[in-house]
Amino acid sequence: MQQTRTVELGTGLFVFLGVVALFFLTTQTTGFSGFMGGDAYRVTARFDNIGGLTTRAPVTMAGVTIGRVEAIEFDPERLNARVTMRIDGRYDQIPDDSEASILTAGLLGGQYIGLGAGGSFDNLRDGDEIYLTQSAIVLENLISRFLFQQSQEDQDD
């Protein structure tokens, strides 16, 4: 009897530790657990260039994550990228003339969408499109523009 009790106790401890560890991993190491399940609404935006944006990238406003990128697809008719964002239903008072831009978090960080508030009295609703967008800054383009400017200045002198 004593022996089965220690076996049960040991197994119980083991299973308990395992479940605690799993709980720790799912809640503490991941951001936004359980957030996307609640009521959320979708808005779309078109970008000429999305750079390195990926699905599940955060959508932020004033630096606070309010949603995630749900889908990115290429529009063959208008030849640009259509990004679908899922925004938490709690934040349903975003002006519909807000601006969406693709930003980079730090040097090694991933890219995310930052929303800048507009001044309209109407709010974004499910299915709306954000018209004011700013594409990702592609480093190569920036460098080539800089070099082009430099050589132009040299010619002017």
Binding site: F14, V15, L17, G18, V19, V20, A21, L22, F24, L25, T29
Partner: peptide, 15 residues
């Protein structure tokens, strides 16, 4: 049954 629990414990302790 034991393996996923062991992995979870290993990972949590590793972090």
């Amino acid at each position: 049954i034991a393996m996923p629990l062991l992995v979870a414990i290993f990972t949590a302790i590793g972090i």
